[in-house]
Amino acid sequence: MKVKQISVFLENKSGRLAMLTKTLAQKNINIRALSIADTTDFGILRLIVDRPDEAYQVLKEAGFTASETNVIGVQIPDCPGGLAQIMEVLAEAHINIEYLYALPEKPVDQALVIFRVERVDDAIIALQEAGITVLSGEEVYGL
């Protein structure tokens, strides 16, 4: 039920993100979701792609510093309160969220939410017990 996320170190200078996306494009790797966390000096790009292991290898070979992290992918209804319901479940289970990012999917009125939490396995159980559908890696990569 875990989803592999690729994180990449990016220095804050022009052309780095262009270089990275080009590297993935050349290998025909598709980006499903992404977010960037940044400081004044550097950023961390977090990516969900269709072929994470391959993407990780390709980026490393291109000289990027990258790592793979397990995150959780959940599909929620794209309507008021959609995210609130999930937050409540995790809060009750005392699970801290390190960060999250979301990607709306208009035709189906759903949104994909990616969570990075402290205790991944506990979080998955808590969500499932609350009747929330946690997506498998394959489901997310193939979205």
Binding site: S7, F42, I44, R46, T65, R116
Partner: peptide, 15 residues
């Protein structure tokens, strides 16, 4: 230079 072994997906760790 960052190295693979210290790199993290969390900003706080790098800081």
């Amino acid at each position: 230079e960052v190295s693979e072994k210290m790199f993290s997906d969390k900003v706080a760790n790098l800081e």
